[in-house]
Amino acid sequence: MEFSRRETLALGLGAAVLTLMPFRANAAAEDAIAAFTGGADMADGGVTLTAPEIAENGNTVPIEVSAPGAAAILIVAAGNPEPGVATFNFGPLAAAQAASTRIRLAGTQDVIAVAKMADGSFAKASATVKVTIGGCGG
């Protein structure tokens, strides 16, 4: 099997696009986080993100976040076409800065939780979820 110059170029271009794709998705997720934190540093710990290791159906993945002392928690799914998932803002009557919900995941990816603490600092946690069937209808 011989490759012409044109085919070789096309192959190289395809490979380049493929390697760029995940990078682009991550950049969108980072933008979403930066918009939330204003570019501030994030500490590890202080946030607990509970998600299944393997989700059979990406259409409903149960997740739970908890961050004692947080004012708000942002959830980001780095591998989704739109990385934003939800933002929880806790009021004075929230007994615990925790919530659970069900989310859609397009494929195997990292789910990231960023908590904004009452003192203005930020903390981060992430969990990798393996998805057998994607949840974005493609």
Binding site: A99, T101, R102
Partner: peptide
């Protein structure tokens, strides 16, 4: 008085479900 205020994106599943604690 506010307990919780959630901003939702399209990545929230069909029939949105939330569980949380209130005082």
């Amino acid at each position: 008085e506010l307990v919780i205020d959630v901003t939702m994106e399209p990545a929230i599943s069909t029939n949105p479900y939330f569980q949380f604690d209130a005082t």
